[in-house]
Amino acid sequence: MPDAFTTRTLHVATGSRERVVDITTDCEDFLREAAAGRDGLFNIFVPHATAGIALIETGAGSDDDLLAALHTLLPADDRWQHRHGSPGHGRDHVLPAIVSPHATLPVIAGRLELGTWQSVCLVDTNTDNTDRRVRLSFLA
């Protein structure tokens, strides 16, 4: 029988532009092995101070809308006290207060219990950090 708790690190290259990266398939691949058909909880965590996890529809413009909304809420200008890095980088450090760095989702019979249009996405507005780690965990 598989372990009650399994965890793995996923590496995601986000590049030098702001991105919403759909990692649903990576999550499902992990659960196929880790959950092995069981019910439990899936936790996803980004151990970075400038990235988050969102459950959002992708491919129909919602991912671009999210980035646009974040630009409205968190403009990349000189208002931020945190000033190292690219201009406006201080806003990237506020992002996890709006787009949480973690999510816990139900797993039923080894599969993520997502809504019809929901995808698990990494949200990264930090153009200075092009490589991200994402911790995937399953608890039966």
Rank of each mutant, 00 (worst) to 15 (best):
P106H: 02
E33V: 14
R133S: 14
G37H: 06
H102L: 06
G40A: 06
P47V: 10
N129A: 11
L139W: 11
Q81W: 12
A76V: 03
H93E: 09
T72V: 15
F45Y: 09
D39I: 00
L114A: 02
V20T: 09
P47Q: 04
R32C: 13
W117Y: 09
V94W: 02
N129M: 08
F42E: 00
D92Q: 06
W117S: 11
R19N: 13
T72R: 13
H82D: 13
R79F: 10
D29W: 08
L139S: 02
Q81Y: 11
M1W: 10
W80G: 08
I56K: 11
A76S: 15
P47H: 05
G52K: 07
R111W: 06
H48I: 15
R132Q: 06
V134N: 01
F138C: 07
R32Q: 15
L66S: 10
L95I: 05
D26N: 10
L139F: 15
D26C: 05
V120K: 02
D63S: 11
A76P: 04
R132P: 14
L10M: 12
D131K: 12
G15N: 05
L74P: 00
V134Y: 04
A76E: 14
L70H: 08
R38C: 06
V107Y: 00
I108S: 10
D78Q: 09
L112H: 05
A68Q: 15
E18C: 02
D3V: 11
I108M: 13
A35P: 00
D29M: 09
L139C: 12
L73K: 12
R79H: 10
